[in-house]
Simulated scan of single mutants.
Amino acid sequence: MRILFVAVVVAFLAACTPQSEEAPPVIVPKGPGEQAETMAPGDVGTDRWVAPGEADLKYVASMIVHHRQALEMSALAPERARNETVKGLASRIHDTQGPEIGAMEQWRRQFAENAPAHGHNGSLPEVDHGSMPGMATDEQLAALKAASGTDFDRLFLRLMIAHHEGALTMAVDLLSSGSDVRVEEMANDVVASQSDEIARMKAISLP
């Protein structure tokens, strides 16, 4: 939305400005507390690289780890779950979050490649696993791996609902503090897909 708004402003200025005058630079707002950047009108709507904020970097680094645990949990379902709906949801989670990890890793590679040219060393923030909401503990993962049948189904749903709710918290926080358009798009995808999956998991009735 931010880039679209800027593009509309540029189009309006171009229509009102004589062709002989040079168009003024466009101001691109950043995250809270961050200094805005300027962009040439010709760069609006292009893939011109803009340095992401700390919130974007932290979100991507954390969500990759968060998603990997969801993959670890969902990979247990084919052999241990009894309920077919649980198996289907686990498969959906695996098929959705695997490509999302790939997209976030690609974004990190692009950041590392572009950052040095913009005065950033390309380093990424350290991730504190315990600080991420919804993450299952080592003890909970061990219990899930040891369970089977209906016991597995119940524990899987309880842990995965909490895991998804934690991901929603992280995504909503990013949308209020991030500045990178691509990261915001990925966070919106998390909100859409995992909100739907939470509703599906809560609707499952087990004996």
Score class of each variant (00 low, 15 high):
P133K: 10
A55S: 14
S131L: 08
P24N: 02
M63S: 09
A23Q: 11
V65C: 01
F152Q: 09
E113R: 14
A112Y: 00
D47Y: 00
G88Q: 09
A117L: 12
H94L: 10
R92N: 09
P99W: 02
P32T: 06
R154M: 06
A61T: 06
L159F: 03
G166S: 07
K30T: 08
P78S: 06
G33L: 04
G42L: 02
A51T: 10
D56L: 06
K30A: 12
V60D: 00
A55N: 10
M135P: 05
K145E: 14
G130R: 08
T150P: 07
Q140V: 13
N121I: 11
A77K: 07
Q106T: 15
N114C: 06
D153R: 11
G122T: 10
L57A: 08
N121R: 11
T150V: 15
G98L: 10
R92W: 06
S131T: 13
G98S: 14
Y59C: 04
E79C: 14
N114W: 01
M63A: 06
E113T: 14
E54K: 11
G88N: 09
G119V: 09
D43I: 06
F111E: 01
F111R: 03
Q35I: 14
D47V: 15
N83W: 03
S123Q: 12
Q140E: 15
R82E: 13
Q110V: 12
S148I: 05
A70D: 05
L157G: 04
L159I: 15
E84R: 13
P29S: 05
M135Q: 06
